[in-house]
Amino acid sequence: MRVNCVGAIVLDDARRLLLIRRGHPPDAGRWSLPGGRVEPGESDAVAVRREVLEETGLEVAVGPLAGTVDLPAPRGDTYAVRDYRATVVGGTLTPGDDAADARWCTREELARLQLTTGLLDTLRSWRVLPT
């Protein structure tokens, strides 16, 4: 089964990338983009705004689709993830929901963090890494 999911690629004014440390499986303890499942009846934009707010305390305006990726999910399912560019419009950075932590990261810091599998290569291929 394909599970519809969304994620957010958010850069601040200093060109740092917003990441969350996953608090639950899959990939608990690893850093990733904020995001999650699209709930029944939600548009992608509504899901992105909800997930970012729940996981980071930040309100975002959702921009264009940056890319899509299929990731393995439990029980042989597939997470069909659509990642969107987004811009912070309010809120205060505070980890919540299933995020154990949340932070802004420079390009150099990304190389040192334990990221979810394939994240760095995917962001590089989409040309959305911080400069």
Rank of each mutant, 00 (worst) to 15 (best):
M1W: 07
M1N: 11
M1C: 09
R2I: 06
N4C: 11
C5L: 03
V6D: 05
V6W: 00
V6E: 00
G7H: 03
A8W: 06
A8Y: 00
L11Q: 02
D12C: 08
D13C: 01
A14D: 14
R15C: 08
R16Q: 13
R16E: 04
L17N: 07
L17S: 08
I20L: 06
I20M: 06
R21M: 04
G23P: 10
G23C: 10
H24I: 15
P26K: 03
P26F: 10
D27E: 15
D27A: 14
D27M: 10
G29P: 11
R30W: 00
R30C: 12
L33V: 02
L33M: 10
G36M: 01
G36Q: 02
E39C: 05
G41T: 11
E42C: 02
D44R: 03
V48H: 09
E51D: 05
E51G: 00
V52E: 00
V52W: 01
V52M: 02
E54A: 14
E55S: 09
T56I: 13
G57M: 07
G57E: 08
L58T: 06
L58D: 05
L58M: 12
E59P: 05
V60W: 08
A61D: 12
V62I: 11
V62L: 13
V62D: 06
L65P: 10
A66M: 09
G67H: 07
G67W: 10
G67C: 06
T68F: 07
D70N: 11
P74D: 04
P74F: 00
G76L: 04
G76H: 03
D77S: 11
T78W: 04
T78L: 13
Y79C: 07
V81R: 07
D83C: 13
Y84M: 07
Y84Q: 04
A86N: 05
A86Y: 00
A86L: 07
T87A: 05
V88Y: 00
V89A: 03
V89M: 05
V89Q: 04
V89L: 01
V89N: 04
T92N: 00
T92F: 00
L93M: 02
T94Q: 09
P95M: 01
G96T: 02
D97K: 09
D97F: 15
D98Q: 06
D98I: 06
A100V: 04
D101E: 14
A102I: 03
A102E: 07
R103Q: 10
R103F: 02
W104G: 03
C105W: 01
C105Q: 06
T106C: 05
R107L: 15
L110V: 04
A111F: 09
A111G: 09
L113H: 01
Q114P: 15
L115W: 13
L115F: 13
T116P: 13
T116D: 14
T116W: 08
T117F: 11
T117R: 15
L119C: 12
L120I: 04
L120T: 11
D121N: 14
D121E: 15
T122W: 15
L123N: 12
R124S: 14
S125F: 04
S125V: 02
W126K: 12
W126T: 08
R127A: 15
R127Y: 08
L129G: 12
P130M: 05
